[in-house]
Amino acid sequence: MFNTNLKESDDMYYIVETIKSFSQASADLESAVIRNGFGVLHIHDLGTTLRTKGIAFDEECKVFEVCNPAQAAKVLSIDMRLNMALPCRISVYTEKGKTKIGLIKPEQMLSALSQDAALVEVAKEVEIKTIKMVDEAK
């Protein structure tokens, strides 16, 4: 059994390990995103894409692009250049037989791109929600 409370502690990342299968964790993340008032804009299935391009890739990886339109509008009204950092991305992936769910923390990422205090506040709100989604999916 994997320790479901294991969290990798790097300031830029929030990653949890789950005992769920890759497919189940992916489905549960999609449900958690919707329950928390965000939408799933797109899901990139990187594992399948690499394999269909002839790349030997044994791991699974889906990247979920998620967005809350009101929060995105706040970010863009503060600094339009930050469109390049949107939408938020949450990944479900396998690594050495373990399923993980993670994200780059919005507050850390956006603070590196802008020092605006209002932006930091929006990023904190989004970070709390996206971490909640990850925790619900694990």
Rank of each mutant, 00 (worst) to 15 (best):
L50K: 09
S91G: 13
E121D: 15
K62V: 08
E95F: 13
I55P: 09
V40F: 00
S26R: 01
L110W: 00
V16P: 01
L119D: 02
M80W: 11
T49G: 13
K20D: 09
E17V: 13
G54P: 04
D28G: 03
K62A: 09
I90E: 00
L76T: 08
N83E: 11
Y13F: 05
D135G: 12
V134S: 02
P87C: 06
K7D: 07
E121C: 12
R51G: 02
R81Q: 13
V66D: 01
A112Y: 10
I131C: 11
T99K: 00
E95N: 14
K7R: 14
N68Y: 02
G39F: 03
C88P: 03
F22L: 03
E95C: 13
A118H: 09
K74M: 08
P106V: 05
F2E: 13
I34V: 13
I15C: 00
T130F: 08
G37H: 04
E125R: 07
N83G: 15
I34S: 05
T94H: 06
I131D: 04
V40E: 00
I131R: 10
Q24F: 07
Y14H: 00
L50Q: 06
L119C: 04
M109E: 11
S111A: 10
Y13L: 08
S91P: 07
P87M: 09
V134L: 10
V33P: 00
D79T: 01
C88E: 03
R51K: 06
A117N: 11
E125K: 11
I128D: 15
C88W: 02
S77E: 14
E95M: 12
C61D: 14
G102M: 04
C61T: 11
P69T: 06
V120H: 15
T4F: 02
T94E: 05
G47F: 06
I19D: 15
R89A: 03
L119Y: 02
N83W: 05
R35I: 06
L50T: 06
D79L: 00
T52M: 07
G39E: 06
V120P: 08
L50H: 03
K96L: 07
K53I: 08
K20P: 01
G97H: 05
N5D: 09
V126T: 08
E136Y: 03
K138A: 14
A118N: 13
L46H: 10
G97D: 10
R35N: 15
A118C: 07
I128C: 11
A73K: 15
